[in-house]
Simulated assay, not measured.
Amino acid sequence: MLTATAHSAELIATEIVVRAKARDGKFIGSSVGGAWVRIKDADSGKLLAEGLTEGGTGNTELIMSTPRERYKPIADAGTAAFKASLPLERPQLLTIEVLAPYIKRQARTLSQTQTWLVPGKPISGDGLVVEIPGMIVDLQSPGTHGYIPLAQAPYEIRANVVMMCGCIITPGGIWDGQKLEVSALINKDGRPYQSVPLQMGSTMNSFAAKFQPDSPGNYHVTVYAYDPKTGNTGVDQTAFVVTK
């Protein structure tokens, strides 16, 4: 007669490396506050590990200009990553959530994927690379809830735009500001009012335009940056009051 023998499965520490990569950009690391990674059990939702990606954005030439060959890594030892070692007794389906860039709330995007992790079979090297769409748009002027006399018009609308990895945007550069569409959509007293294109300035990442209101009111400004080649888009908003 055969009898079942009780035994406890051995827990095997298994590494997983997670990286956040900006769409049409480099890796999201310490220079923009990192990406927050959450690793969960896919069935129960139990949190298994979490933390920030840390490190650099990676090698620009390798990531952006070198033709990609199968199995050739695009990350090196200094490239931003989050690493965890999970004690596994059986293959486990994981849900990976990535919030990035973590410190820029108005630009922060949640990207999610799933993967199996098998005991003793690490996901290392480049690891699990999660793409983060978007751009970081910081609307710098007008200031939020400012009260501005009509007599001081025209006002400057000014925004700072960078890739999600923090990579700079310049005229004619790798990330060419002259090929981006950056514009302000302006509402007055809750209704569409004007659309004002912003132009790339001489300062990196900087876009600006003049805005001339015709009367006092409550104004809401939405500035977007859009890359027509990739569809990559970022947005920021503000509101201010024009007084008599």
Rank of each mutant, 00 (worst) to 15 (best):
V118L: 01
S215V: 00
T238I: 04
G177K: 02
V235M: 09
D24W: 04
N218I: 08
L93S: 09
R191M: 06
Q194F: 01
V241R: 09
S183A: 05
T3R: 15
L62N: 14
I16T: 07
S183V: 12
G166C: 08
S85H: 10
L128N: 05
F207T: 01
A75P: 06
D236K: 00
L62H: 09
P87E: 06
E131G: 03
V37H: 10
I136D: 15
V129Q: 09
D236Y: 03
L110Q: 15
V221I: 15
V221G: 07
P197L: 00
T95N: 08
L139C: 05
P171L: 01
L62S: 14
W36P: 03
D176R: 02
P197E: 01
V17W: 14
P171F: 01
L48W: 11
A239L: 01
A49D: 05
G231H: 02
A153V: 08
L180F: 04
E54H: 02
D236V: 01
K210T: 12
E50P: 10
A49V: 06
G51H: 11
A225M: 00
N187V: 01
Q114T: 15
S31H: 12
K121Q: 14
Q140V: 13
P91H: 00
L117G: 07
G34A: 07
G134C: 02
P142W: 09
A209W: 02
K83W: 05
K72E: 13
I123S: 05
L94T: 09
G33K: 10
A80N: 05
T109W: 14
S141T: 15
L86H: 10
A9K: 14
R90T: 03
A35P: 13
A107M: 10
I123K: 11
G55W: 04
I132E: 03
E50W: 12
N59G: 05
H7D: 11
N160S: 15
Y147K: 12
L86Q: 06
S124I: 10
P154A: 03
Q140A: 13
R105T: 15
P228V: 00
P197S: 00
D176E: 02
R38G: 07
V18R: 08
L139V: 05
G166Y: 07
N205Q: 06
V137H: 02
C165G: 06
F207A: 00
K188A: 07
T170R: 14
A184L: 02
A6D: 15
S195M: 08
I96M: 05
L62K: 15
G134A: 04
W116K: 06
E156S: 11
L94F: 03
P101G: 11
G45H: 04
G146V: 06
S8M: 13
W116P: 02
V17F: 13
Q112L: 12
I96L: 10
